[in-house]
């Protein structure tokens, strides 16, 4: 009997960290989505790669002629507008909607071209079905055009450390003040 209780206790203790990890995300967290992403160096990770940090998350495609370069400019503008302390915590995740062309090599090249700091930024791709789901949890719209280009809404979302969308902005070209106020909270 005693041994049984000890075994039970032991099992409970062993199980607890795993349970906590699952239970720690609030119901509205996008980190509930099981998504397999591949980053610019070919490493695989989930949507929750930056869990624990505030994250600016957006969707783009590398061959995009106009909006996506502007999206990167906007993300950099937001970064520049934060304090050094905020910047040290803030992470940026850009997910491609064009898995066909945005290979890890293409993403790495884009990162180098745009002098992106890969210690705090990640450029990632996922398969078509996963992209559709990530767009759905983020409320981002996109559509592939017959010529291979994409229409997509230029939305930057701010995730809190638990993966809950706490701010969204369609402002392109400069830092959204509302977004900056939210970033200051984390």
């Amino acid at each position: 009997m005693n041994a049984y209780v000890r075994l039970l206790l032991c099992a409970t203790l062993l199980a607890t960290p795993a349970l906590q990890a699952v239970a720690s995300h609030p119901a509205e967290s996008v980190y509930h989505l099981e998504a397999s992403l591949t980053n610019q160096t070919g490493d695989e990770h989930g949507l929750d790669i930056y869990s624990g940090n505030p994250v600016l998350i957006t969707m783009f495609y590398g061959r995009c002629p106009m909006t996506c370069p502007l999206l990167i400019d906007t993300l950099k503008a937001i970064e520049r507008s934060t304090t050094a302390e905020q910047r040290a915590r803030l992470r940026i995740l850009m997910i491609s909607i064009d898995p066909e062309n945005d290979t890890p090599e293409a993403l790495l090249q884009l990162a180098k071209q745009r002098r992106i700091d890969l210690t705090r930024w990640t450029l990632a791709r996922a398969d078509e079905r996963t992209v559709r789901k990530i767009a759905a949890v983020l409320g981002i719209q996109y559509r592939k055009l017959p010529n291979g280009a994409y229409n997509h809404s230029s939305v930057i979302a701010l995730l809190d450390p638990n993966g809950v969308v706490v701010a969204r902005s369609s402002m392109i070209g400069k830092a959204d003040e509302g977004m900056l106020e939210k970033i200051a909270k984390y």
Partner: peptide
């Protein structure tokens, strides 16, 4: 439908006037 989040995209999102 699968692409439910593809239905409201405007024809050109480079129009910077009012994305909302």
């Amino acid at each position: 439908v699968d692409d439910v989040n593809a239905m409201l995209v405007s024809s050109d999102n480079r129009e910077q006037s009012s994305p909302d």
